[in-house]
Nucleic acid binder design. Sequence first.
RNA 1: GUCUCCUUCGUCUAGUGGUUAGGACACCGGGUUUUCAUCCCGGCAACACGAGUUCGACUCUCGUAGGAGAUGCCA
Length: 493
Amino acid sequence: MSVRVRYAPSPTGLQHIGGVRTALFNYFYAKAQGGDFLLRVEDTDRERYSEESLDDLYQTLNWLDVKWDEGPIVGGPYGPYIQSERFELYQKYAKMLVEKDMAYYCYCTPERLERVRKEQKESKSSVQGYDRHCSNLTKEQRDELEKQGIKPVIRLRVPLEGKTTFHDVLMGDITRKNKDVSPDPVLLKSDGFPTYHLANVVDDHLMGITHIMRAQEWIPSGPLHILLYKAFGWEPPVYCHLPMVMGKDGQKLSKRHGSTSVKDFREKGYLPEALMNYVTLVGWSYDDKSEFFSKEELEKIFDITKIHKAPGVFDYKKLDWFNGQYIRKLSDQELKEKVLPYLVKEGFVDEPITKEQDDILNKLIPCVKPRLKVLSDIVALSKFLFTEPEVAEKEMFVAKKMDLASSTTALIKAYDILKSGLDSDKPFEEIESEICDVAKEMEVKVNAVFTPLRVALTSSTVSLPMNDTVTLLGKEKCYKRIERAIEMLKGEI
RNA sequence: GUCUCCUUCGUCUAGUGGUUAGGACACCGGGUUUUCAUCCCGGCAACACGAGUUCGACUCUCGUAGGAGAUGCCA
């Protein structure tokens, strides 16, 4: 039988690292097995649903170039793939269980449920959860409650005796006593929408899903789902619970650890290839030496048995490293195109770009390439080029073991050399070596002379190499900035 | 509280009943470099603990501890 897996997110927020990792594992597994990858939108929580989240889901998968074989937009033989569009279906199946007395109507108010929960917690009761208050209502009692206009929910009747086992590809057999399985969970909410448990089981069965790969946070409800399959008389699929993605402190990855939404990473300028590569390496590995995997490779080699059991910590620094590696693999032309939106957004270049600006970029890109961790770093790195910075603080001109006076002297001397060299079209190497001679003559380190020059030109103590800075900026701007700096420094001495 | 799962360097991980326990990131040091990066070289650092099985255990078994997750008309 051909493999059919699905990614079934709930559009209640932006797609985050954990969700995408689940999507990727499902997708790669399907492709490696020659099977199908489905997308299903579980929008049964009407309170938290948002249109924006749904857009973000599509955008994220598109950005990663993960294509679903069946699902929203593309359709498929088992549609619709959006649960809200399957509304009636769940009612039918829930009622089917009520008729078999495997489920029942419950009229408890949220207030009562909350009170019960609170009491249980305070009394440290060993029994937690729903107290099965409505499990044995008579027809008359139900009619009475209906008459009061209370909209009931449908709850599954979980057996009190026995135990339920399910098999997990990674974890092995997982057994739970039925009395410890969630006490009579809600299947159908009072608004008529199904809960996750019902919708999930019904759809997975109807859509012919063969393998369920989802986060380990679902392990505890595994037995419950098995109970549901049994109640319906269906064959459960193969389970594979994926290790969770944690933050540095070992807790479930969340916003307080930093960016978690793929949108954030995208906007900061992480490349989809890099993010994909890194994310699939959290909880999965191929061997002891391979680290770089393209999407195409993963579609061939992804192996479910090499998934780790233990949760993994998401390492932002390693992602940065991967991203830098992928940026360096880009051609100058590719990098230019990717970086352009950031420059436009900052107002550094026009839209469309002018010929002059394009020429500058062609020079800028190779200088900047080894210095980018994320694409948006281009802004800080090229700001000196596109804006006229304030003259820097006087302290910045002063290198180690120098004072303001000697730094000013050094700058003046360096400026003379630079100006006459540039004006007579001397090769830059010669100019540089002459500036080095100044240092020798002053008996200071080379850096002591270059620092004031650098700060004068860029208002920063770190910059691109002098040669590049000067050619990028052009003679006139360089002279102007240095003269401005010298004037300021003289006034300060 | 109850239930379930997990446990190799700081992090991601490889690994076999007998290995100097391997790699990558991070970190530290060195080289290249006028700065910052890149790049190159080197270093640091782990089998949670205890007992058992065994000639021998990081590897198998059992306990303990620690961590995580679940316990919703959220998924």
